[in-house]
Amino acid sequence: MIRPPLISAAELQQALAPSQTPPLVLDCSFDLADAAAGERSYREGHIPGALYVNLNEDLSGPKTGRNGRHPLADRADYARWMGRVGIVPGREVVVYDRQAAMYAVRAWWVLLWMGHRQVRVLDGGLAAWQAAGGPLSQQIAQPLPATPYPDAAPQRPTIDAQQLQQRLGDVLVLDARAPERYRGEVEPIDAVAGHIPGAKNRFFKDNLQADGRFKPAEQLRAEFAAALGGRAPAEVVNQCGSGVTACHNLLAMEIAGLHGAALYPGSWSEWSSDSSRPMEKSPRS
């Protein structure tokens, strides 16, 4: 059964009650400017029983300098990682972070891509958990390892740089980066500023309410319908800087009932590494 993509703090508290079969909780907190910060914050306090997941080490593959900052790992590597942390078919998994779900969504998408449907994102993250009276723990949880997750065909669509370049104009590219990065006014991370030609900007934080929880499904559906301009979700490619916050827009589309959009995993960090690919900037309107 496909679970709703979000779980509330109250629902998670109930699911973690001693009388229940608890879900496996993964803390995905991270900081692009300080790769060790996420684990430090986990050690300072996390949802009891949660395991720490590192964006660089667990959710990304080896970098070549031309495949982006957070390339996908091989499916066999993900299958082994899932086994190491105890993810087996049918096991409920909840992912969260401290950064508006911007990293938890990568774990959510990877698990779905690997065929694990029983995964949800904690709506509002750790702040929502604490606001609901949830306790924090400093005890380092230990996984219950299992065999590598059984591999199957990818369960979520992706597109690579060559395919995307061939289809520019035929698909709608949604760029999840901040507007000033999308326009090419600043570029604090990658070597080149700008965006993929024809891309539209949908800043991932626009998916959230002021309290850090996702907007209602109806509101997200209306906003994305306006952005898509009549295109079907299957004609949409989501990208960002390195294929991480693009998953935030993919989650928002799932909440809105808009299924089937693709991820460009390499995103701008891969695209801009090859000067032969077309790039553009947009003036502030």
Rank of each mutant, 00 (worst) to 15 (best):
R3Y: 03
I7W: 15
L16W: 11
A17M: 08
P23W: 05
C28Q: 04
D31I: 10
A36M: 11
E39V: 07
S41Y: 09
H46P: 14
H46R: 13
I47N: 00
Y52S: 06
Y52G: 00
N54D: 11
D58P: 07
R66Q: 08
N67K: 05
G68M: 05
A73Y: 12
D74M: 05
R75W: 10
D77L: 02
V85D: 02
G86N: 04
R91C: 08
V93T: 01
V95R: 06
V95T: 08
Y96C: 01
R106W: 06
L111K: 10
W113V: 03
W113I: 09
M114S: 05
M114C: 11
H116E: 03
R120P: 05
A128V: 06
W129M: 07
Q130N: 08
A132G: 09
G134V: 03
L136V: 13
Q139C: 04
I140Q: 08
A141P: 03
A141M: 06
P143K: 03
T147C: 11
T147E: 13
P148H: 00
D151L: 10
P154S: 05
P154R: 03
R156N: 01
T158K: 06
D160A: 09
Q162W: 03
Q163R: 00
G169R: 09
V173D: 06
L174A: 00
R181M: 12
R183E: 04
R183W: 13
I189Y: 15
D190K: 08
V192L: 14
G194D: 13
G198S: 06
A199D: 12
F204K: 01
N207L: 01
N207I: 04
Q209L: 14
P216Y: 15
E218K: 09
Q219T: 12
F224C: 03
P233C: 01
V236L: 08
N238I: 15
N238R: 12
N238V: 13
Q239Y: 12
G241H: 13
G243Y: 15
N249M: 04
E254R: 05
I255C: 04
I255A: 05
L258A: 01
H259A: 11
A262F: 01
P265T: 14
S269T: 14
W271R: 07
P278Y: 03
M279F: 05
M279A: 02
M279D: 03
E280C: 09
P283E: 14
P283G: 14
S285R: 15
S285C: 12
